[in-house]
């Protein structure tokens, strides 16, 4: 029983990180039809900015360090995403190949720059003692970092749903996902919604970058890229443009990976996720909760 609980919470923790990256990716694709391969770069830059802030505050209390790092990571992710949209992606709307090339280029350049500045080896992160400890749950010792990731992702999900369903900008984003031209034809500046969505997506990716650092105990220039691949799978399974779809798919993918990697063999879980992706694409191409086009 305790093993099942442990695997379930670990899988949910991993799914939480996937969701935080996938949420922005899904909204950006849904509204703007931009396949943002640079989304992992927001994650990476944010995690290194947070790590640097934490290092600069080495003499402060561990909790203060962690909260400042969290804030710096989120702001960095949001700013980097906003700048990327304004400078690189905005001139390339409607030019899909150009978008792919520029976002892939930005992702590769960012990882290379981070490696150049910080080295390619993982670096340990400092965190409050409570984060490194475990809490008992149904007989299992659950790492507190998993609990933090799950709670943070749940809060982000609730905030995003509130934003989408209860605010005017959320209404614009939901409508824009369906028909961007008609939103403009109602007198609404969709461009501002684009920038806002990029900022939200980058902030969520930044949060994921900081939480992943505490989840794994290290930061690593390549982690953003591997996280991006998983997030793309989550977005496609959940349904492009659907936040609740991304949340559901992230939970499924995280649990599938953990349980099969443990009970079958290492790597089987990752393979099963790819099979699941293929099945969803064949049976329900719009994704679990995506609107069929």
């Amino acid at each position: 029983m305790s093993t099942i609980v442990l695997l379930a919470v670990t899988g949910l923790g991993l799914g939480a990180l996937y969701f935080l990256v996938a949420a922005g990716l899904s909204l950006i694709w849904g509204l703007m039809r931009v396949l943002n391969f640079a989304h992992g770069a927001f994650f990476t830059v944010a995690s290194y900015a947070a790590w640097s802030a934490s290092q600069a505050l080495a003499s402060a209390s561990p909790w203060l360090q962690w909260f400042v790092a969290l804030l710096v990571g989120m702001v960095t992710g949001g700013l980097f995403a906003t700048l990327s949209e304004a400078v690189l992606i905005r001139p390339l709307y409607q030019r899909h190949i150009g978008q792919v090339l520029v976002t892939v280029g930005l992702a590769l350049a960012t990882v290379a720059l981070v490696e150049g500045g910080f080295g390619s080896d993982p670096r340990p992160v400092s965190m409050p003692a409570w984060m490194s400890a475990t809490s008992p749950l149904f007989g299992a010792a659950i790492a507190n970092t998993r609990i933090v990731a799950i709670v943070a992702a749940a809060l982000v999900l609730l905030l995003l749903l509130f934003f989408l369903r209860r605010t005017r900008y959320g209404l614009i984003v939901r409508a824009g996902v369906e028909n961007r031209a008609m939103v403009s034809a109602l007198g609404i500046d969709v461009q501002r919604a684009f920038t806002l969505v990029f900022a939200i997506g980058g902030t969520a990716a930044g949060l994921a970058g900081v939480l992943a650092a505490t989840y794994y105990g290290t930061i690593d220039p390549a982690r953003g890229t591997s996280m991006l691949i998983s997030a793309f799978i989550v977005v496609v399974i959940g349904g492009l443009g659907s936040i609740t779809g991304s949340a559901l798919a992230a939970v499924i993918v995280g649990l599938l990976q953990q349980f099969l990697n443990f009970y079958a063999a290492t790597g089987v879980g990752d393979f099963a996720v790819v099979i699941l992706l293929a099945v969803v694409l064949l049976v329900r191409p719009a994704g679990l909760l995506g609107a069929s086009s």
Partner: peptide, 14 residues
Amino acid sequence: DVFAGLSVEENLRL
């Protein structure tokens, strides 16, 4: 070109 996923009231509010 109504927004199919939005309610009637949301279409008007938009």
